[in-house]
Amino acid sequence: MNIFRFLGDLSHLASIFILLHKIQTTRSCRGISFRTQALYVVVFIARYLDLFFRYVSLYNSAMKLFFIASSCYILYLMKIRYRPTHDPSIDTFRVEYLLAPCLILALIFNYKFNFAEVLWSFSIWLEAVAILPQLFMLQRTGEAENITTHYLAALGAYRALYIPNWIYRYFTEGLVDPIAVTAGIVQTGLYLDFFYVYFTKVLQGQKFELPA
């Protein structure tokens, strides 16, 4: 485990705690896309099914269980506990347009044509684009609470930090994972516009507002 990966994982953990904190303290899931959160449940379950047949480390298993459990808990908070605060009329991105291409990509690009590996590849592609309903919603409302932008920044930083990790692993272990690398670059790329506004506005003490 190198420092980039570790920081990436910490950033991912932090993003979930920030999101939970936002929902609990404001007692609202306003500004959060249910569709994106539901896609993360699909991503984690599809990818971490290997919990049942592969043991890597305590760290690895604990993180996988945490990501599955926390993503399900967030859905519960959004759909049941704070349901009235969720406005489905602005959360309208068609997730079929993400699921179908990801399934096709997974069937074409995988390391072995079996159920678990195709599902793994599917989860990698789906994770890359799962943020789109959220970004689409942000685009529609044109603004966001600061705490929501911190959540998105931590979530975006997580996969961005995996990129130097992959470079490091290539040089130190000779490992290359073209599927994860390609999807990871796409995933990070989707955040570029957001990061620009986050760094130039939110971190300068201004409100997150997109130009009209």
Partner: peptide, 10 residues
Amino acid sequence: DPAVRPKDEL
């Protein structure tokens, strides 16, 4: 065996 991915990443 063709390329295998590192199984330790999240």
